[in-house]
């Protein structure tokens, strides 16, 4: 079993192998966060490496006020957001408009033949959503974080997290509902 405290102590004592173990343990968590926020595939791994370098350098300041995974995901989130700000010129300020009226580019394919195509369409919709919706969906469904942990990671209020999650899923449901009537599944 992975013992957070023991690993952190070993890393702080200068044990490099312990840090490598920590990287292996949390690389999936970081990948999920970075995957949804950084669109360029070739940049995703660079950003994730930067995340772990920051983790290593900041580890002496980690006081176990939260779970190590929450703390690492916050570093991943902030690093990815900074990357997006610098390189993708994407709007990273919180989206305050109504998500139901959010305009998606290349919206609604004429026909969807099977489940795979519908899944690809849904992926496209998620990729176009405002950044805070993408983050919340990812942290909840892939990282299996609670709303409270997502709030700690992103700095949003817990109520905002819940509302983002609800609105994003409702929008996705509405967008794909028409195709399901044609017995795609």
């Amino acid at each position: 079993m992975f013992d957070e405290r023991a690993i952190v102590s070993s890393v702080l004592a200068g044990d490099q192998a312990a840090f490598e173990l920590l990287v292996k343990q949390y690389e999936r968590l970081v990948f999920f966060v970075v995957y949804r926020l950084v669109k360029e595939k070739e940049d995703q791994e660079d950003v994730a490496q930067e995340v772990f370098i920051k983790v290593y350098n900041s580890l002496p300041r980690f006081a176990f006020a939260s779970k190590l995974s929450t703390w690492i995901s916050r570093i991943a989130y902030l690093t990815a957001i900074n990357h997006v700000k610098k390189h993708q010129k994407e709007q990273v300020r919180p989206f305050t408009g109504d998500l139901e009226h959010f305009s998606f580019v290349g919206d609604r394919p004429e026909t969807v033949m099977d489940k795979k195509e519908l899944a690809a369409y849904m992926d496209k919709l998620i990729a176009q959503m405002p950044i805070q919706y993408r983050t919340v969906l990812t942290l909840f469904h892939l990282n299996e974080f609670t709303s409270r942990e997502i709030a700690q990671t992103t700095g949003m209020a817990e109520g905002t997290v819940k509302s983002c999650l609800f609105r994003a899923r409702k929008l996705l449901k509405e967008k794909i509902q028409g195709y399901l009537k044609n017995d795609v599944l």
Partner: peptide
């Protein structure tokens, strides 16, 4: 049915 699909894909 739609929600099942959405949750399944998100997971």
């Amino acid at each position: 049915k739609a929600y099942r699909f959405v949750f399944d894909q998100l997971n």
